[in-house]
Design a protein around this nucleic acid. Structure first.
Length: 280
DNA sequence: CTCCTGTCCTGCCGGC
DNA sequence: TGCCGGCAGGACAGGA
């Protein structure tokens, strides 16, 4: 479900409410999601204060005052709800992890498909954690640029859709924003990576940053079940240029003489949407 | 090494 | 109305 903008939005909501809070109780309602819940989750968190919440790629990192770091991933269907005055909250279907906070609020991790993950590490070793050691640069950070992207593309002959989905190339894009970014850069999703020019790579890096920034500003995209931590809906889905718009005219062709029909194809088992008239 | 396919799991939607 | 197939925002193992 959630890609970088959605995770960023959830993380910001969590930071607002949870930073400086003490976790009083940790309740796991099953043994595992995609991976088992850490056996020492309860003992490492209960009675400790949350010092910082941050996002890395599609992961949420929750730092504790004892050096513990909770690593959370929402998978496809994961949601996090923050409930004020939740002392008497009755767990709902697919609520798998519930933190009780010092102010009486609760954080609920709900995940129907259970592709999500909750892991535990220490701030001293977090950078070498297997989830992060292979990860590419943050697209909105300083280490990502058109030239950095161009260098990586030179060594790859796979199609551009697959390359941008690869978290080792750039961290945080997913199925929606890859289609959107390739559209804005005018690059066909089936183009071989090593056939992308330096200038196109520059345009693509800029398109990636732009679409992500706009999506974050809109609070992410709400498809089926995504919500902010406070239950609000994101609204960037209303600004999609191509994603989910098979058969419609793309924004760039809207004023042109020869109108396009947005096409949907399947690459690596995932749907890709693009404009056949303007993406080459 | 790189690349591609299948798989994990539940829910929802459209077609019959 | 009900049943069934296909598809869904992700990541990783395993095989070629």
């Amino acid at each position: 479900m959630p890609e970088l903008p959605e995770v960023e939005t959830v993380c910001r909501g969590m930071a607002q409410v949870m930073e400086a809070q003490t976790i009083l109780s940790v309740l796991t309602r099953r043994k595992n999601l995609r991976v088992p819940f850490p056996a020492n989750l309860q003992s490492r968190l209960e009675g400790h204060k949350i010092t910082k919440l941050e996002r890395r790629a599609k992961y949420i990192l929750m730092h504790m005052d004892n050096g513990a770091v909770v690593i959370m991933h929402l998978g496809m269907s994961g949601r996090i709800f923050l409930l004020p005055d939740a002392e008497s909250y009755e767990p709902q279907k697919h609520d798998h992890l519930i933190f009780g906070m010092g102010d009486g609020s609760k954080m609920v991790f709900n995940d129907a498909r259970r592709f999500g993950m909750v892991m535990l590490d220490h701030e001293k070793t977090i950078e070498s954690h297997s989830a992060f050691s292979q990860l590419g640069p943050e697209p909105l950070g300083n280490r990502f640029s058109g030239s950095v992207l161009y260098e990586v593309l030179q060594n790859k002959k796979t199609n551009m859709k697959a390359v941008l989905m690869d978290q080792r190339v750039v961290a945080g894009l997913g199925n929606i924003y890859v289609s959107e970014a390739l559209f804005y850069a005018g690059i066909h999703p089936e183009r071989a990576a090593n056939k992308v020019s330096k200038e196109e790579a520059e345009n693509l890096a800029a398109a990636i940053r732009d679409v992500l920034n706009r999506a974050i500003a809109a609070g992410g995209s709400t498809l089926k079940d995504y919500r902010h931590a406070d239950g609000e809906l994101g609204y960037f889905q209303h600004q999609f240029a191509v994603y989910g718009k098979e058969g419609e005219t793309c924004p760039r062709c809207a004023d042109a003489l020869n109108k396009c029909q947005i096409q949907k194809i399947v690459q690596s088992g995932r749907s890709t949407y693009f404009c056949p008239a303007t993406q080459k």
